[in-house]
Design a protein around this nucleic acid. Sequence first.
DNA 1: TTGTGCATAATTGTATACAATAATACTCGT
DNA 2: ACGAGTATTATTGTATACAATTATGCACAA
Lengths: 233, 233
Amino acid sequence: MSQKKNEFLENKDESKVSGEVTDKYSLRGRVFNRIREDILSGKYSENEELKEVTIGNELGVSRTPVREALRQLELEGLVNIIPNKGAYVTGISQKDIHDIYVIRSYLEGLAANWACSTMTEEEIDALEENIYLSEFHVRKGHYEQIVELDSQFHETLYKASGSKILEHQLSTYHHYVERIRKVSLGMEERARKSNEEHAAILEAIKKRDKKLAEKLAHAHIISTIENLNKQGL
Amino acid sequence: MSQKKNEFLENKDESKVSGEVTDKYSLRGRVFNRIREDILSGKYSENEELKEVTIGNELGVSRTPVREALRQLELEGLVNIIPNKGAYVTGISQKDIHDIYVIRSYLEGLAANWACSTMTEEEIDALEENIYLSEFHVRKGHYEQIVELDSQFHETLYKASGSKILEHQLSTYHHYVERIRKVSLGMEERARKSNEEHAAILEAIKKRDKKLAEKLAHAHIISTIENLNKQGL
DNA sequence: TTGTGCATAATTGTATACAATAATACTCGT
DNA sequence: ACGAGTATTATTGTATACAATTATGCACAA
């Protein structure tokens, strides 16, 4: 075998994004994330066949981790596996992304509603700090940090909802549209407005006003959708 | 090895439930369904460790299909895998079930709303037949068929929503609570009422009245929750 | 030329072998 | 008796071998 010093086998640390399910430090986990990334980024085209040996060779690993990764991606809906035939890229369309945001608008509302009952003081403090910090980075134009803080805000909210199921689902969607979020928050105008909306949501939760919190969280995502439309996404 | 004629290896046909992701005819698919069933039915207790070889021996298969199944179950949230340690049963609590129904109440509403734009004549016909047939089986007390028709009704609605994402998610939840649904629809009173609600939802969709369809579909699931509470679930 | 059938190759499905890691038990000194 | 350190075992992680299935190509007849 060519033994071509594959950097994939070395690269053990990536930015730790919250809400991860798959193990980042096993080969399977890394193959999983890699393929997912490649699908979401459009490296693979719709309906393209993903062959276990080919991917394995590209990444310098055997079929085993690749197979496991593909099976998991099937459950995420990113690949379609036809038994005894192969794994085919499903990809996600513009409409899919739109649908995810609409679904999220309901579920984030629900999370905010539930969080009114279950959010702890520590979580409130964490969100206040998040908003404060984010304000700073927006002024400075630190987009990397803005995106990370946005992730943290939402993940904290999900956890604070007190529902394992809801948290799991929202995390999945949130990660799904990670790429899109980076573009969206790349506009200063939107980043600022988004943070203001976060602040309003937190205020409602602090007052334990379920209806208001739900409405604001819902509106926050709708507002994101409108922004995406403006950007032609 | 003991070679104890394991019936698991023979049993190739099970009731074909719609919305299935995993292949029922591969070993992996059958192991997956079996473990899921065992977790949902309470055969495994919370936090119990699932060892690959043990399960493999019980089912008369090697570790490979078991591993793949466990990795998939991790994504469904039914097991928690700690790298290099093991797979532990997460199970789903009463609260989880309740949460799923609340989430579904929103998403089924959304599905009904969207279906107003996208449902075809064929789908409408199928649902009308479904309701008509279901009426018959309710009168006769054929609970097996009632549950199957209920599944079909909802799966058709999901598909008619025209959203791959929404369909996928609702199917997953729907299957998650399959066991519960059987109990719920086992009450004649509820089975009858449920079918009436289906009819009302379909009428709204036929009139392409999005708001009404959404409201009725939402209420249908809420109504189911209330029924479950009545049954002490 | 076209299409059918068979041989061959490519690919997935499953089992097993080997490697790495974590859990357990044991030894030995105090 | 007790604990630290180490050897042993158990278990998971990955690679490879073999089996089953599907795709491909070629021969050959109409």
